[in-house]
Computed example of a mutant assay.
Amino acid sequence: MSTDDPVELGVQLLARLEHAELSLPELIDRIETVSTHPETTRAILEEAERRGHISRDGETVKPVSGQFLSFESEVVTRGGEFECRRCGASISTGYFMKLEAGEHGPFGSSCIRKVTGRE
């Protein structure tokens, strides 16, 4: 399944986070790699919570799915001229997440670890 639906892409991203918990601003940092539109951000949060991918307690968010991305098969790298979706840096190697809703990226080497929870 491949879609251009940012809400579905964002929900799938949140379902695959490796963090034990994040603050709400840290979670929004991850969502903003998909969309910076406030209504879309809210829709992603609400849908991820409704589906049971995250639980919220005030400003603390805990991913609950335990279905982490496999860096061997679900994160691909490509060489080229890219701009990191998280920090905006120019990168020559882009890391892309392969989610059911579509590919999400590119990210630089440190941002892919931060977004997924490996760092």
Rank of each mutant, 00 (worst) to 15 (best):
L13V: 03
G94I: 01
E8G: 04
A43D: 13
T33K: 01
F82W: 13
I28Y: 09
S65R: 15
E59Y: 06
L9D: 00
S23R: 06
L22H: 11
V61P: 03
I54K: 01
E32H: 05
Q67T: 08
A43Q: 09
A48L: 10
L69T: 11
E47W: 07
A43E: 14
E72D: 10
E49L: 03
F82S: 02
L69K: 02
R56A: 15
E39C: 09
E81P: 04
R16T: 07
Y95A: 09
S35A: 02
E81T: 11
G58C: 10
V64W: 13
R30N: 05
L24D: 04
I31P: 00
P25D: 06
G80Q: 02
E32N: 06
V75P: 00
A15E: 11
E81M: 12
R85W: 04
G58M: 05
K62S: 07
A89R: 12
H19N: 12
G79T: 12
M97V: 12
E39G: 12
R50V: 14
L14F: 07
S70T: 06
V34Q: 00
P25Y: 00
R78T: 09
G52P: 03
L17R: 10
R85Y: 06
F96C: 01
T36L: 04
H37S: 13
C84F: 03
A43C: 09
G80R: 02
G79V: 07
E81L: 06
E8Q: 14
L24S: 09
L24A: 10
D57M: 10
E39R: 13
I54Y: 01
G88T: 02
V61I: 15
Q12A: 00
S73D: 12
S23F: 11
T40S: 05
L45W: 06
P38L: 02
I44M: 13
R78K: 15
G58V: 13
D29H: 08
A48P: 10
H19E: 14
I28L: 08
F71E: 15
L14M: 15
R16F: 09
S90K: 13
T77L: 10
A20F: 11
L13R: 02
L69G: 03
E74C: 04
T93K: 07
E32A: 02
I28Q: 07
G94E: 09
M97S: 08
G88R: 00
S90C: 15
E46P: 14
R86E: 04
L14P: 14
E32M: 04
H19M: 08
E32S: 05
T36A: 02
I91Y: 11
T41R: 01
V61D: 01
G79Y: 07
H19R: 07
